[in-house]
Amino acid sequence: MRVVRWIIALAVAAGVCWLFPLFHVVPLQAAKAEKAAAKFDAAEFADTFWNKRLLPGLDKTVKADVLLAAIQADPAAAKKKFARSVGFSDAYFYFVSGTGRVVSVSDDGVSLAITPGSTNAEVILLAGLIFGDAVRDGTGLLNGSDYSNSQDFNDMSAALDHLVETRVLPGLHEQAKIGAEISFAGCAEVDDEANDLKPLKVIPIQTKTR
């Protein structure tokens, strides 16, 4: 009787597995190719995004002199008018461009005076290792909810930061000479208004000497 019960149970299990297969057997090569095709290539995405959307999108920036004047007058109003924030985070971003004169240079940053005649550092173009999500989240060109896999979205940010380090910073280091005039576009993340606004710390996306 017990054997019959086992046979019936196994038959039912086999039937269920036939109706709802547990897995599909595929050749190893085909499985590898499929996996490679399905895998998100953050570096490739970042490269395409950089060339086709980010650089053409620099016309969406707010001018640095306008932004700095607004911050000087009323930081809260400037935030409301020009900043972008993501989710519930207290941090916010400015997508900013402008021209300034180099007033000091270090390994970590190039300080610019934006206001004509000023010798104060009003903007620092970050020139060391780049961290954070400012480039990804600060432009408004990418929306996290479009990416179901948060890991892909994180990888995207790291790849964009890497592009800044490899494509923008070498040129900036060459351009950064005291007194030189540099045009820039980039993203600033403000976590702590007391420290991040004056001077405004910008991750450069494009820099040119004039």
Binding site: F20, P21, L22, F23, H24, V25, V26, P27, L28, A31, K32, K35
Partner: peptide
């Protein structure tokens, strides 16, 4: 990621039902 059986030269791609059963 499925299950790779290198010795047999095949990979098992699990369905959601298969993954649940496993």
């Amino acid at each position: 990621d499925g299950l790779t059986l290198t010795f047999f030269g095949v990979a098992l791609q699990f369905t959601p039902f298969g993954a649940i059963v496993a």
